[in-house]
Amino acid sequence: MPSPHLSERTGRTAVDDRTADDDRTGPVLDHISRKQRSATLIAGGYFESAGGIGDFSLNSFALGHELGAGVRYRHRGNKVLFDVIHNDLGMACGTDACSVTAAPAAIDLAPLTAAAATAGVTFTVTRERTLRNRAARSMKEWLKNPSAEPRFVRDGDDIHYRSRQYEKVLAGVVKDNYVVPRCPLIVNEYFVKYFARLRQYADCARAYVIDINSFADKDKVTKGAEIYLRNHAAPTDEIILVFADPSCTNVVEMALSARDF
């Protein structure tokens, strides 16, 4: 936090810290159409194998339920799905690289199941290992024919994505004729999977994925969102990135669509 004297001198809080008393869902819900029926996937409850289901997981899961109720209220017939991302890669992610830290372990989902039951919703769990494998398969195809997708560029063993918002996006690393996808590609794969699922609701004109993340993950999810929106998105797709602290009382939202790029 900034020094207290700053607040005293300016007569106001130096940083706009939203609290539980503030409307933490309103700015997110403002992005959901009131004019058209929509299908929305809300990804909250993220947890890692190593840390298990902790505060961020439970609080972001609860925030997701609150958002889900709000989305349903925005338009008659809106569909809402809930998903929890389980990072079972055993990796710690940095901006540009990942390192193996631990082997995946079995996780007891009971706290999330109980919370969902209380909220009266069901949810799915998506394992990052699955997303990573799908991303690796598609990149292996790309390796055979790089000109098919010129937005990816090979530089030695690194594969970069020609971003329109970042100077550099490391998408993967080639090892023994196999691509190890980096975080942006895994995030992209998540959006590919879930927007495809949302398109099954043919009566919904719009599709949203509301993805709740920790602040530290801003760049990798923003990069992944760009890859999805430029390479795969329908014009009616919109990604609403929500960044939150572990208590999910301090919330910042950013909406992205293909039009931004």
Binding site: V15, F215, A216, F243, D245, N250, V252, R259, D260, F261
Partner: peptide
């Protein structure tokens, strides 16, 4: 910066970028 205050400032910069993009008829990324 990868904290709440930084992400909030980032969002405001991007909102301004969107406003400028609309102003000239371009995309935010341009």
């Amino acid at each position: 910066s990868p904290h709440a205050a930084g992400v909030r400032a980032f969002r405001e910069v991007e909102r301004a970028r969107s406003a400028v993009a609309r102003f000239v008829g371009g995309a935010r990324s341009e």
